[in-house]
Amino acid sequence: MTADPISPIPQSGRVREVPPAVAAMVDLIRQTWRQAEPYTPEISQFFYGMLFTLAPATRDFFPINMESQRGRLVRALVHIIQLVDRPDDLAPFLRQLGRDHRKFGVVPKHYEAVGTALLAALKRQLGDVWTPPVERAWAEAYTIIARSMQEAAGKDTNPPCWLATVAEHRRLSWDLALVRVEPEQQVPYEAGQYMSIEVPQRPRLWRYLSPANAPRPDGSLEFHVRAVEGGWVSRAIVSHTQSGDVWRIGQPMGRLAVNRESGRDVLMIAGGTGAAPLRAILDNLAQWGENPKVTLFYGGASREDLYDLEQLRALASTNPWLTVCPVVEHGEGLPGFAHGTLADVVTQHGAWPEHDVLVSGSPAMIRATVSRMLVAGTPLDRIRYDPFTID
């Protein structure tokens, strides 16, 4: 399994009818996790100790300083397991995740070791609560996940990862940088996807980033990276990346996209550097003469957070199907800006029932915005967002 800080979130409201046995299994998992979750640090410590004993080679999958890892993998595993009853959301994500794990050199015995270590850690913490039905539920759910990931990995013919050289590093502000890299081989991604990145300043600390451009003939990728508090990788990229650095890039992931054939207009909601994947989609749409009407709400705490506003406005000036609406939480009186949170401003315009909705930003921004839109009446099956966090 991965060291990535994954926090899976369902991408849509499409819910396939699941067998009662699967629903009961997931209910049991959720009930027991509520009892175990306060003890995540203890569970994580035991989990890693057990994992490295069962499969010593897995130690090389993780950073030397495990402090930065903490309980990320355990939380990620549990979040994924709790989505077993959402196959339409989970299956595509697991296939992408399985392909991405090839970069570590993961083999079936590693999946087995992770499962054994996770169950052992939970059993130790839950004590009498860990009954045979509980153990069977966790084991069956993990088996479903591991099998899906291994099958996808086995069918992938792409390289496990790509090498890319930093061609440009430019500070846009004290905490924000634009980085352009040139891969040795074309990375087969689609506009709106994200990918895991390893930089030489932070070996083994893979983090997800979204290219801000559609695929180009020269294969180059542009990333917009903000240094976040406690973000080991983001801070290293912003402050220490140099031209000539070699990055490793994992498999493209995610399903953010615009269906030009749906006949529906599009609402995009971007917070901060969450504008990057949506800008990539707009970059891709700009090659067509006709597109659905796209309304982009681009927000941040202050005007400075809307670093890409002028470029997006320039794109809108040459593409009449695009409207850009800037939003700031602090800074009343700015001409042409709406004031408030993205959730506030977007829902002031109603439920957008006839639109496909794409949301991109921090996990907190995504949750707040999607929750408000659901209350306003937006159909959940029209909303898309990707299951990853930054640092």
Results as ranks from 00 to 15, higher is better:
residue 197 I to L: 08
residue 328 V to E: 09
residue 249 I to Y: 03
residue 109 K to V: 13
residue 133 P to V: 09
residue 133 P to N: 08
residue 387 P to M: 13
residue 192 G to T: 08
residue 197 I to V: 15
residue 187 V to M: 03
residue 374 L to H: 08
residue 280 A to V: 00
residue 107 V to M: 14
residue 305 D to Q: 12
residue 85 D to N: 13
residue 229 E to N: 13
residue 4 D to W: 02
residue 328 V to C: 09
residue 339 H to T: 15
residue 64 I to F: 03
residue 111 Y to I: 06
residue 53 T to V: 08
residue 33 W to V: 01
residue 272 G to M: 10
residue 169 H to K: 09
residue 28 L to P: 00
residue 380 L to T: 08
residue 289 G to D: 13
residue 29 I to E: 01
residue 65 N to A: 03
residue 391 D to Y: 05
residue 93 F to E: 02
residue 36 A to I: 09
residue 307 Y to W: 15
residue 271 G to M: 13
residue 246 V to S: 02
residue 182 E to D: 11
residue 331 G to P: 05
residue 209 L to V: 13
residue 122 L to A: 10
residue 282 L to K: 04
residue 346 V to N: 03
residue 220 S to A: 14
residue 316 A to G: 06
residue 110 H to F: 04
residue 257 A to P: 04
residue 181 V to F: 03
residue 44 S to C: 01
residue 336 G to C: 10
residue 310 E to C: 02
residue 75 R to W: 00
residue 87 P to G: 05
residue 167 A to C: 04
residue 337 F to N: 05
residue 278 L to A: 09
residue 166 V to M: 03
residue 285 L to R: 02
residue 181 V to Y: 02
residue 219 G to E: 01
residue 29 I to L: 13
residue 94 L to F: 03
residue 219 G to H: 07
residue 297 F to P: 06
residue 80 I to A: 02
residue 286 A to V: 09
residue 232 W to Y: 13
residue 43 I to M: 06
residue 287 Q to T: 05
residue 216 R to L: 14
residue 243 S to D: 03
residue 47 F to T: 06
residue 140 E to G: 12
residue 120 A to W: 01
residue 52 F to A: 06
residue 119 L to Y: 05
residue 111 Y to R: 05
residue 118 L to H: 07
residue 376 A to V: 12
residue 114 V to K: 00
residue 362 S to W: 08
residue 354 E to Y: 14
residue 146 A to I: 12
residue 379 P to A: 06
